[in-house]
Design a protein around this nucleic acid. Structure first.
Length: 817
RNA sequence: GCUCGGGUGGCGAAAUGGGCAGACGCAGGGGACUUAAAAUCCCCGGGGGGAAACCCCAUGCGGGUUCAAAUCCCGCCCCGAGCACCA
C-alpha cells in the first residue's frame, strides 16, 4: 500500500484542513435551529501590534480544546472570537508610533486573525466583532442610555490622577510611587466631573449570586476575589453630637460598635463636609494648611499604608453617646471620604491604625476588651482586635460579655436610644466610566442650557467618533473631542436649541461588559441582541479566561447583565454559568511580557513544528488551570507522539487490521484511556489526558497492535488537541465525514478493570514484596500467599504477627513488634 | 500587613475520601541500525551503602496522629498572584 509510506507534513495537512473547514462552513453552527446549542466562550483579545504570544495561545487553545470536545459529544458548538480594540493601550501605542489608531487597529486585527486561524481554533468567523466598529459601539452607547434612563448613570466630581507631562488622566495602576509610570513626573490630583454607574446598588445581589450553584459554577479563586472586592461588612452607623452645637451631628461607620466605650476621639476625612462648620477659629489655619497639603498628593500615595500617620485637631469635641464624655475631633488622611461616612470613631485600644495615631499624638487609650490574663486596668501595648475571645470591660452594663455578643447588644442599645443603627457597608465603589481620551465610544449625551443633560435618542445612534488628526490629550483635562468644533456643537434633541456634546468617551470595560451578548446577533443591525438567539444560546455554559479579569471585567459583565435583566431585556441575571480561570505561561521564571523580554512568538514554532504539535505541547506542559513553564526543548515530545500515531494509522490502513484480535492488556488499556481522557477533558486536566493517550500509544506499540477500531478512537481522542492532524488521520482510516462530526468514544466499565491486581505486601508499613493475584481472590488466600513471599518471610522470621491490615486489591500489612 | 495559590528527580510534572512516590514527557547515559551523522528503535536512570542478594535515606523545615503520611493536624521557612490605612 503506497500511501502507508506518506510522511506526516504538518504544513500540508494544516493548510488543507483550514481551507476545507472554511469551504464546508464546518465551524458555523445554525444559530436559529441548533437542537443542542453550546456557547463556548473565551475572553477576546486586545489586538496589540506585537501579535499573539504563546501565553495568549495557551489560553485560546485550552478553550478551543474544550469546545471541540463538547462538539464531539454531540453539542452544536458556537465558538466566536472578536477584538477588544478600543482603549488607552491602542491610543498610547498609536501616539508613540505617530499613527492614527484607526489605521493601526485594522492592521493588528488582520495579523491576529491570521494567527488565530493558524492555530486551528474552531472559530465562527462569521460572527466575529470589533468593539471599535460603529455597528458594535452603537449598542455600547445604547447600553449607556439604558442605564441613564433607569437612573443608574450619574455625574459627580471625582478625584483622578493627572500627569502634567503626558497631559492625561492615569489609572491608579499607572502610578508608581507617586510618579507616572511612563514619564516619571510626579502625578497630581485633579477633581473632574465624571460619569458613574451605580454598581453599588447591585452589591448585595452580585455577592449573593456567587453562592448560588443554580446560577454560577465558577473557579473558587475567582469567586473569592469577587467577594473580597465587593467587601461586605456589618457594623453600625453611630451619630455623635457636636459639643455646644444643636444643629449638627456626625455619623460614623464602625464594624466594632462593641468598642464604643473605648472611642476616645473622632477622625474625619480631610474632605469631610462638616469640617468647615466645626473647625474653631484657633484651629482654622492648621486645618486649612493640612487640607491643602493633602490635596496635592496623588491618590495612590494617599492610600498606600505603612507610612507615618498625620492629622490635625479641629478644635471641636463630640459627645461619646455611651460614656457621655466629650472627645476631640481630628482630621487625618488615613480616613477616606469615599468609604462609610467619611468619619470614624477612633478606638485606639482595639484598632491598630487608631492605636498608632493615638500614640503619635498622645491621645488617650482605653481598654474595653480583656482576655483571661488581663484586667480592666492592664495597659494596652498593642491594639487588641480579637472579636471572638476576651470579655468586655470598662463598658458599663455590657461588662463581661464576649465582644461578638456585645456588638449585637450595643447596636440594639444605640437603636433604642436613637443614637444610631445597624448598618452594612461595601468596599465596592461606583464604576467610573468616563475617560478624557479619544479612542473610545463617545458617551451619548448632549448638554443643553435649557434642558440639561439630554440623552441622544436611540434612532440617532451611533454617535460616531470623529476621525480627527490631533487626538493627543492636552493640559485642559478635557477630552480631545472638545477641540473638534463641528462635532462638539450639536442641537439639543429635546428643544432643538444649541447644545454641546459630552466629550468624554466610555471605559473599555464597558465595551467588554456585553460582547458575549452580541456575538450570536452580529447579523442584526436593528437590535443589540436578538431575543430568540439569546434565549437559545445564553447564559453561557462555559467561559474560560484569565484571572487578571477576576474582578473588573467579570463583575462589570455581571452587573450589566443584571441591569438588562431588570429592564426585561434578558431572561437571566447571571451571564456565565460556568467560569474557569486558566493559568499563566512562565518563561525563564517570569510571566511573559514585552518589558521582561521573554515573549515567545508562536509563528516560528508553527512553521517549524506545526500548529497541532504546538497546541499539544502547550496543553501538555502543565495543568491548564495553573499554567506552566515554556521550554523550547520540550516540544519534541508531543511531536514524536503525533508521529507515532501517524505510524499506527498507516499500519491500520491495512485491511487485515479491521476487526483484528485485540490483546486483553490492550483492550483494558484502551477502555481505561477512554474513561480517563473523557473525565480529564471535562475537568480541563489536559496534561494528564495527553499523558493517558501517550500511554495508550505505548501499549499499542508494545503489543504490535494497530487494530482499526482502536486506532480510530485514538485519533478521535487526539482530535481536540491536534485538530488538523486528526482530520487527516481520520480520512486516511477511511472515514468520510469530519472527525468533529463523529461521536466521542464510549468506554465499557466492565473492561476498565484488569483481571489481576498487584498486592503490595508490607511488614510494619515497609514494602517487602508484592504478588499478583486474581482480582477476585479471597482474603485468606491472599494473606497466606503474602506470608510466603521471600522478602516477607525474612522480615517475619522469629516475630509474632500482632495484627494484619488488609486492603482488598491493594495491600497486606503485617504488624509485628 | 491581609487573602489565595504553590514548594515532589537534572527539568516540566503525576499520584491527595492516607495504601508500591516519581505515571507521561524533556534533557542525559549506554546499545542497535549507518561508511558516518541526523532520524528511528531498544535498554538505564532520586540519593547513599554493597560484589551481589539486599539494606538505609528521601516529596521545603521541625513536631504530631496512624499499621501506613507527598496526602491529615500543629508550628515555621521560601516562592508566586491579588488586595492594600475599607474603620
Amino acid at each position: 500500500m503506497s500511501n502507508a509510506r506518506i510522511e506526516y507534513d504538518p504544513s500540508v495537512v494544516e493548510a488543507k484542513w483550514r481551507a476545507r473547514w472554511q469551504v464546508l462552513r464546518t465551524n458555523e453552527p445554525d444559530l436559529d435551529h441548533a437542537p443542542r446549542p453550546f456557547y463556548n466562550l473565551m475572553m477576546f483579545p486586545y489586538p496589540s501590534a506585537e501579535g499573539l504570544h504563546v501565553g495568549n495561545l495557551f489560553a485560546f487553545t485550552g478553550a478551543d480544546v474544550f469546545g471541540r470536545f463538547k462538539r464531539m459529544q454531540g453539542w452544536n458548538v458556537f465558538e466566536p472570537i472578536g477584538f477588544d480594540a478600543f482603549g488607552i493601550h491602542s491610543e498610547n501605542f498609536a501616539l508613540r508610533m505617530g499613527m492614527h489608531p484607526a489605521e493601526l487597529i485594522p492592521r493588528n486585527i488582520a495579523n491576529f486573525t491570521r494567527q488565530l486561524s493558524g492555530m486551528g481554533g474552531m472559530f465562527a468567523w462569521d460572527h466575529s466583532l470589533s468593539t471599535t466598529d460603529p455597528r458594535y459601539y452603537k449598542w455600547t452607547q445604547w447600553i449607556f442610555l439604558q442605564l441613564f434612563q433607569r437612573g443608574l448613570a450619574y455625574k459627580k466630581k471625582g478625584a483622578v490622577n493627572w500627569c502634567p507631562t503626558d497631559k492625561t488622566v492615569l489609572a491608579n495602576e499607572q502610578v508608581i510611587a507617586g510618579a507616572c509610570e511612563r514619564c516619571g513626573s510626579m502625578v497630581e490630583l485633579r477633581v473632574l466631573e465624571q460619569w458613574y454607574f451605580r454598581i453599588t446598588d447591585y452589591a448585595e445581589r452580585l455577592l449573593r449570586n456567587l453562592d448560588d450553584p443554580a446560577k454560577m459554577d465558577w473557579s473558587a479563586s475567582t469567586v473569592l476575589a469577587q467577594k473580597n472586592w465587593i467587601g461586605r461588612s456589618e457594623g453600625a452607623e453611630i451619630r455623635f453630637r457636636v459639643a455646644g452645637r444643636d444643629d449638627i451631628t456626625i455619623p460614623v461607620y464602625t464594624t466594632r460598635p462593641d468598642t464604643l466605650f473605648g472611642a476616645t476621639f473622632l477622625v474625619l476625612a480631610p474632605e469631610h463636609p462638616s469640617v468647615d462648620s466645626i473647625t474653631s477659629s484657633s484651629a482654622r489655619a492648621s486645618v486649612e494648611g493640612y487640607r491643602a497639603e493633602v490635596s496635592t498628593r496623588d491618590l495612590v500615595s494617599r492610600k498606600v499604608g505603612d507610612k507615618e500617620k498625620s492629622g490635625v485637631f479641629v478644635g471641636a469635641h463630640v459627645v461619646n453617646p455611651a460614656t457621655g464624655r466629650e472627645i476631640p475631633v481630628w482630621i487625618a488622611d488615613y480616613v477616606l471620604m469615599d468609604y462609610g461616612t467619611g468619619a470614624i470613631m477612633a478606638v485606639p485600644g482595639h484598632d491598630e491604625r487608631d492605636f498608632i495615631f493615638a500614640a503619635r499624638f498622645g491621645l488617650p487609650i482605653v481598654r474595653v476588651v480583656a482576655n483571661e490574663h488581663e484586667t480592666a486596668d492592664t495597659p494596652i501595648e498593642v491594639a487588641y482586635v480579637d472579636l471572638e475571645h476576651g470579655r468586655m470591660v470598662n463598658s458599663g452594663v455590657f461588662d463581661g460579655m464576649v465582644p461578638v455578643d456585645a456588638k449585637r447588644s450595643i447596636t440594639q442599645w444605640l437603636e433604642a436610644q436613637d443614637h444610631g443603627a445597624g448598618s452594612v457597608q461595601y468596599r465596592l465603589y461606583d464604576w467610573c466610566i468616563s475617560r478624557q481620551r479619544y479612542w473610545g465610544p463617545p458617551i451619548p449625551i448632549i448638554y443643553c442650557d435649557q434642558c440639561g443633560p439630554v440623552p441622544v435618542p436611540e434612532d440617532q445612534l451611533p454617535v460616531l467618533l470623529p476621525p480627527i488628526e490631533d487626538f493627543r490629550p492636552d493640559d485642559s483635562g478635557v477630552s480631545p473631542l472638545a477641540r473638534h468644533a463641528a462635532w462638539y456643537h450639536a442641537p439639543c434633541p429635546r428643544c432643538g436649541g444649541p447644545g454641546r456634546r459630552e466629550t468624554d468617551v466610555s471605559d473599555t470595560f464597558l465595551d467588554s461588559a456585553w460582547y458575549f451578548l452580541r456575538y450570536p446577533s452580529t447579523d442584526f443591525d436593528d437590535r443589540p441582541f436578538d431575543a430568540d438567539r439569546t434565549r437559545r444560546w445564553l447564559p453561557v455554559p462555559s467561559y474560560i479566561g484569565g484571572n487578571e479579569h477576576a474582578v473588573l471585567h467579570l463583575l462589570y459583565a455581571r452587573f450589566i447583565t443584571m441591569v438588562l435583566h431588570d429592564a426585561g431585556l434578558l431572561p437571566f441575571e447571571e451571564p456565565f454559568r460556568r467560569f474557569r480561570a486558566h493559568g499563566l505561561i512562565i518563561k525563564d521564571g517570569a510571566k511573559m511580557s514585552k518589558s521582561k523580554g521573554n515573549v515567545v512568538n508562536p509563528d516560528d514554532y508553527i512553521v517549524r513544528w506545526g500548529a497541532d504539535t504546538l497546541r499539544t505541547y502547550l496543553m501538555f506542559l502543565g495543568p491548564y488551570q495553573e499554567g506552566g513553564d515554556f521550554r523550547d526543548a520540550g516540544i519534541s515530545g508531543p511531536r514524536r507522539f503525533l508521529d507515532r500515531i501517524w505510524e499506527l494509522v498507516s499500519a491500520a490502513m491495512d485491511p487485515d487490521c479491521r476487526d483484528a484480535e485485540i490483546h486483553r492488556d490492550v483492550l483494558i488499556k484502551w477502555h481505561q484511556t477512554k474513561e480517563r481522557v473523557t473525565a480529564d477533558l471535562e475537568s480541563l486536566h489536559y496534561n494528564t489526558a495527553i499523558a493517558a493517550l501517550m500511554g495508550l500509544v505505548n501499549a499499542l506499540r508494545e503489543q504490535n497492535c494497530s487494530e482499526h477500531g482502536v486506532v480510530s478512537e485514538l485519533v478521535q481522542m487526539t482530535a481536540p488537541f491536534a485538530p488538523h492532524f486528526a482530520e487527516e488521520c481520520w480520512g486516511r482510516l477511511g472515514h468520510a465525514a469530519s472527525v468533529f462530526d463523529s461521536a466521542w468514544p464510549a468506554h465499557d466499565d466492565a473492561l476498565t478493570v484488569s483481571d489481576d491486581v498487584t498486592i503490595v505486601v508490607q511488614v510494619n508499613g515497609k514494602v517487602r514484596g508484592n504478588l499478583i493475584v486474581a482480582r477476585s481472590a479471597d482474603e485468606a488466600v491472599v494473606r497466606r500467599m503474602a506470608q510466603q513471599e521471600d522478602g516477607v518471610r525474612r522480615h517475619l522470621a522469629g516475630k509474632t504477627i500482632r495484627r494484619t491490615v488488609y486492603v482488598p486489591g491493594r495491600l497486606v500489612n503485617f504488624v509485628v513488634h
